[in-house]
C-alpha cells in the first residue's frame, strides 16, 4: 500500500499567492472557491467519513451474515471490544505489531541513513545507482512478497542454499513459528529502505556545505563531523521520516498476508492481519470483532499521526 505526506524538505519557500479578497467580487469569489471544493468534500464524506462511520457501527453491534445484509443487528456497546481485548490472539498480535514495526523502522532508517551518507558525495554513476535503489519501493507489494516467499522457501529457496554453502543449517523461514515474523520483517525492511534513503538524502543535501567547511577548519574528524554536525542538523528530517514510517508500518498488511497469512499458528499475526482475518479470512466473517480490532489499530496510528503533524507544523510554519 502506498501513502504519502507532505515533504519535510524542499517546500517552495513562501511563494504563496494571496487570495483576492478585496473588491465587490469578494462574496462571489468565496462561492467560487467553495464551488471548486464541492467534489472533494462530497468525496471525503462519501468514501472516507461514511465508511469510517460504518466501521464504528460494525464494531458496536453484533453482526451476523444475515443481519449484515439486512442491517438489523442488535446494539451491543463495547462487547466486541471486550471480546477482542480478552481474546488469546490480542496480546501476541499487539506484540508482533510492536516488534515488526520497531525492528523494521530501526533497520530501514539505519540502512537508509548509511546509504544516504554514501551517496551524499557524487561519484561516477551515483545518480543512476540511487535511482535503481528505488525499484523495491516501486514494485507492487504482491510481487515483492511472492518473490521473497520463494527465496525463503525451506527446500528450494536461494537463501537456504546460500546458508548451506557457508555451512549453516536450513531455516524454515516461513513455516516455523520461530522465524515467520523475522521473515516478513526482513522483506518489509527491504521494501522500506529506498524511501528512507531518498528522504534522508534530500535532507543531507539541504545541509549547507559551509557548515562542513567550518567544522573541517576547526579540525573536526569525519566521525566528529557526522556526530556533531550531520546528526543534529538532520534531526528534524529524521524525526519526521521515523514517525511517518511508524504510522505506515503499523498498517502493513499485504506483505504479511501474502507471505504467511499471519501464520503458522498466529506467529506472524499483527493487528492488521488479525483484523482482516476476522472480517474476511474465515468462512463465517466476524465483522464486529474485525472492525473493533481495526479501530484499535486506527487509534494507535492516529495518535502517532497527530504527533507527526504537530512536529511538521512546528518545522514548516506556513
Amino acid at each position: 500500500m502506498t501513502r504519502t505526506a507532505p515533504a519535510p524538505t524542499r517546500r517552495p519557500a513562501s511563494t504563496r499567492g494571496g487570495p483576492v479578497r478585496q473588491g465587490p467580487g469578494h462574496r462571489r469569489a468565496a462561492w467560487a472557491a467553495w464551488g471548486f471544493l464541492v467534489p472533494i468534500t462530497a468525496y471525503l464524506l462519501a468514501f472516507y467519513a461514511y465508511p469510517m462511520y460504518r466501521n464504528l457501527e460494525l464494531s458496536l453491534r453484533h453482526y451476523t451474515v444475515r443481519s449484515f445484509v439486512q442491517g438489523d443487528a442488535p446494539f451491543t456497546g463495547f462487547a466486541n471490544y471486550l471480546k477482542v481485548l480478552t481474546d488469546a490472539t490480542f496480546v501476541p498480535a499487539l506484540w508482533h505489531t510492536v516488534v515488526f514495526t520497531v525492528v523494521s523502522l530501526a533497520f530501514q532508517f539505519t540502512l537508509g541513513l548509511g546509504l544516504a551518507l554514501f551517496f551524499a558525495r557524487h561519484f561516477p554513476l551515483s545518480a543512476t545507482l540511487r535511482a535503481l535503489f528505488l525499484v523495491p519501493w516501486l514494485l507492487p507489494l504482491i510481487v515483492s512478497a511472492s518473490t521473497w516467499a520463494w527465496m525463503l522457501n525451506s527446500d528450494s529457496g536461494v537463501i537456504n542454499a546460500a546458508l548451506g554453502a557457508i555451512g549453516a543449517g536450513p531455516v524454515n523461514w516461513l513455516t516455523s513459528p520461530d522465524w515467520s515474523l523475522w521473515s516478513v520483517t526482513i522483506a518489509n525492511i527491504w521494501i522500506g529502505v529506498p524511501f528512507n534513503l531518498v528522504v534522508l538524502y534530500s535532507g543531507l543535501q539541504a545541509i549547507s556545505p559551509a557548515v562542513y567547511e567550518a567544522a573541517a577548519l576547526d579540525g573536526a574528524t569525519g566521525w566528529q563531523r557526522f556526530r556533531h554536525v550531520t546528526l543534529p542538523l538532520l534531526r528534524p528530517v529524521s524525526a519526521i521520516t521515523l514517525l511517518l514510517g511508524l504510522v505506515y508500518t503499523l498498517k502493513v498488511f499485504d506483505i504479511i498476508w501474502i507471505m504467511t497469512k499471519g501464520g503458522p499458528s498466529g506467529s506472524s499475526t499483527t493487528l492488521s492481519t488479525w483484523s482482516y482475518r476476522l472480517g474476511f479470512g474465515n468462512l463465517v466473517p466476524a465483522f464486529g470483532p474485525g472492525a473493533a480490532v481495526g479501530n484499535i489499530l486506527i487509534a494507535i496510528a492516529l495518535a502517532f499521526g497527530l504527533l507527526y503533524i504537530r512536529l511538521q507544523r512546528r518545522q514548516d510554519p506556513s
Partner: peptide, 10 residues
C-alpha cells in the same frame, strides 16, 4: 493515515 484494512471493511 487510516489503515487500508479499516477503509476496506467500511
Amino acid at each position: 493515515m487510516i489503515p487500508g484494512i479499516i477503509m476496506a471493511m467500511g
